[in-house]
Design a protein around this nucleic acid. Structure first.
Length: 347
DNA sequence: CCCGGTGGTCCGTCATTATT
DNA sequence: AATAATGACGGACCACCGGG
């Protein structure tokens, strides 16, 4: 049947013929269904092995499951996703399910198209990592296909949610910096996809946490946010804006590690030392943050745990749970070399 | 009961037959 | 001749049936 070349793939009919049983017997063995003797099971297993048989996912899809889970994310360069995916794989390892990953980019259109493509290919479930396409579209999809959304704090009956306590995470950073003696602490953040209907994006919740923490310390008047993109380039621009100004902050909280890297570059260009001239903290605790020349203080979001949790919730949904679940993962501060006391003149 | 098999079913494609 | 309706697949699932 394969359009490209000669030999037809092996089907359960071939297996049945080879083993001298009916196709349904083979099907039962495949599904571990009731009503097959151990001897027959063995015979069928042997036949499958000899013929190098593998179930046809599309055919299974016609009748129900494909045993495939689709993961949608925006940018595969974001190292944080690697942690999540590792978690997903850990949870699914050894099971019947296979994971397919799609990196759609940041655009709404592209993300929507990818999400639909996953549905059209009969994924049994979807894991959407910080989707940037319209929330209405996500809800419509989730109404049909079991879905878990990672990142956004917006909850809905249609899907489960796995989030990081981003407000708390931001608080950890501010508390740490204040304890060191900082007062002028700036944040780099991102507006995200406007008008896509998400009100609980991680960056927004993080921003709220930042302002709350500043207020808690009586520093609300010194709060300052540089809106940028969560990318190296975005961080660089935000860094230039903040560090070149007259009332330069003594500490910069990069809302994401990638952005913090950009601030690094800006600092070098301006001849500012870290942490002597100003402190820098990131968020995500990605692999780069731990590298020896970087040693970036950051917030660990337990990405692996988010991944395993998302996968587990999704399997539950696939098995029939309809009530939606929200799981919140606690972040923790990882102090490294980029944060220290503010310059002496400031104290 | 157990175990094994029959026959209908899913959805989309493509070839065959019927209708205008 | 062009268009429309029909039906036979493809590969696997599953409710149900029947013989020991």
């Amino acid at each position: 049947m394969a359009p490209t070349s000669g030999k037809r793939r092996v089907t359960i009919t071939d297996v049945a013929l080879h083993a001298g049983v009916s196709t349904s017997a083979v099907s039962k063995v495949l599904r571990n269904a009731y009503g097959v003797s151990p001897e027959m099971r063995e015979r069928v297993r042997a036949a499958m092995a000899e013929l190098d048989y593998r179930p046809h996912a599309a055919a299974r899809g016609m009748r129900g499951r494909t045993y495939t889970i689709g993961v949608l994310l925006d940018n595969i360069r974001n190292a944080f996703f690697a942690d999540i995916l590792e978690g997903v794989n850990t949870e699914l390892r050894g099971g019947d399910y296979q994971v397919l990953i799609g990196a759609a980019g940041f655009g709404e259109e592209d993300q929507t198209r990818l999400a639909r493509a996953l549905v059209d290919r009969q994924m049994d479930g979807l894991i959407l990592i910080g989707p940037g396409f319209p929330r209405t579209e996500v809800l419509r999809t989730a109404a049909t296909v079991p879905t878990v959304v990672i990142g956004h704090h917006d909850v809905a009956e249609e899907h489960d949610s796995v989030v990081d306590a981003d407000a708390l995470g931001a608080g950890l950073v501010i508390d740490h910096l204040v304890r060191l003696g900082h007062r002028r602490i700036a944040l780099t953040s991102t507006p995200g996809n406007r008008g896509s209907g998400w009100s609980g994006t991680p960056e927004r919740v993080q921003r709220r946490g930042y302002h709350e923490a500043m207020r808690r310390h009586g520093l609300q008047d010194l709060a300052r946010v540089a809106m940028t993109a969560f990318s190296e380039e975005g961080g660089y621009r935000a860094g230039m804006e903040l560090l070149a100004s007259a009332d330069r902050p003594t500490a910069v909280f990069g809302g994401a590690d990638v952005a913090a890297m950009g601030v690094f570059r800006a600092a070098r260009e301006l001849g500012l030392r870290i942490p002597e001239d100003f402190s820098l903290a990131g968020y995500n605790n990605t692999a780069v943050a731990a590298l020896a020349p970087v040693r970036l203080t950051s917030v660990d979001q337990a990405g692996g745990l988010m991944g395993t949790t998302a996968a587990r919730l999704l399997l539950e949904r696939i098995e029939g749970r309809t009530r939606s679940v929200l799981m919140t993962v606690s972040p923790s501060l990882v102090v490294r070399g980029t944060t220290g006391p503010p310059p002496a003149t400031e104290v």
